[in-house]
Simulated assay, not measured.
Amino acid sequence: MKIGQADERALLEGMVDIQRDEINAILEDLDDEEARRKLVPSLTTPLALVKHAIFVEKVWFHARVAGVPRKEIRLPDTVDESFMLDPEDTVESVRAAHRAACERSREVAAGHELDDAFDWHGNPVSLRFIYAHMIQELARHAGHGDILVEQIRAGR
């Protein structure tokens, strides 16, 4: 079935997966130096965007939906820290970690209904809300990545 003719769940899952693919694709055709290149004053680099997307997957699906404590999955304490790169982070390692985080998120979500509720800072949110939030968050960051990669490629 095509995504445009899918039921609500398949549509939401499909749209999140499209954005996950767009995030992972930020690093296509970049070497490690290019992926770490800082073009804006913030911590945002192509590699950092994908690393942040791993954090987002883990916060929403692994911690919030699956109920695994943040410390157990080694989540940074702040959003800014989720953009920080370790010396061993490479295009290959971050892309693989992102794919693994997305796969785990799919497994976690598959065990829940769209109306199941999860705590978000003392308020209940549905899996439906989480999917919608992920679509907008990942799309925004994919757009950031597109701009950074365009600048990097233009400078080659």
Rank of each mutant, 00 (worst) to 15 (best):
F118H: 08
V108G: 02
A97N: 10
F83A: 05
A48E: 00
I130Y: 08
A142L: 09
W60K: 01
G4L: 09
Y131T: 06
G145S: 12
E8N: 03
A97T: 07
E103K: 15
L85P: 00
A25G: 11
V68T: 15
R95A: 13
A53T: 10
E103D: 04
F61E: 08
R106I: 14
E8Q: 10
L39M: 07
P87G: 10
P46C: 14
L127S: 00
A101H: 06
E28W: 01
R64C: 04
A100M: 06
E8V: 03
P46M: 13
E13I: 07
L43C: 04
M84C: 14
G4V: 09
V94W: 02
V91T: 09
L85T: 03
S82N: 05
H112P: 03
L11M: 12
A109C: 04
L114D: 05
V68N: 12
E81H: 11
K2A: 11
F83C: 04
H98I: 03
D89V: 02
P41A: 04
G145D: 10
A97Y: 11
E33F: 07
K51H: 09
R156C: 14
K58F: 04
G14P: 09
K71S: 14
G122I: 11
R70P: 11
L127W: 04
H112T: 01
I23C: 08
R95V: 05
D119C: 06
L49G: 08
K2E: 13
R153W: 05
G145M: 10
A100K: 03
R37K: 14
A97E: 13
I54D: 00
P124F: 01
V125H: 05
E33H: 03
R74E: 12
L47C: 07
K58Y: 06
E81Q: 15
I135A: 06
F83M: 05
S42H: 13
S93T: 15
R128Q: 07
G67F: 01
V91W: 10
L75Q: 08
A154W: 05
H144K: 02
L11H: 09
R74P: 00
L75A: 11
V79H: 08
A100F: 10
D86I: 00
V94A: 07
A97W: 11
I26T: 07
V59H: 05
A139R: 00
G67D: 10
W60A: 07
G67V: 03
A6C: 02
P46I: 13
H98E: 03
E13Y: 00
H52N: 08
M134G: 02
A101D: 10
L27Q: 07
A96W: 07
C102Q: 05
L27C: 12
P69I: 00
M84H: 11
G155N: 07
R74H: 14
E81G: 11
R9Q: 10
K58P: 11
D7S: 04
P69D: 09
L75R: 15
D146V: 13
R95E: 06
F129Y: 06
I152W: 06
L148P: 04
E72G: 02
M1E: 15
P69Y: 05
T78A: 04
A35C: 07
K2Y: 09
A96N: 06
L43Q: 14
G14C: 04
P46N: 08
V50M: 12
N123Y: 05
T44L: 13
L43V: 03
A48S: 15
A63I: 04
E137N: 10
R36A: 06
D116Q: 01
G67K: 09
A10F: 03
H133T: 03
Q5A: 12
D119R: 00
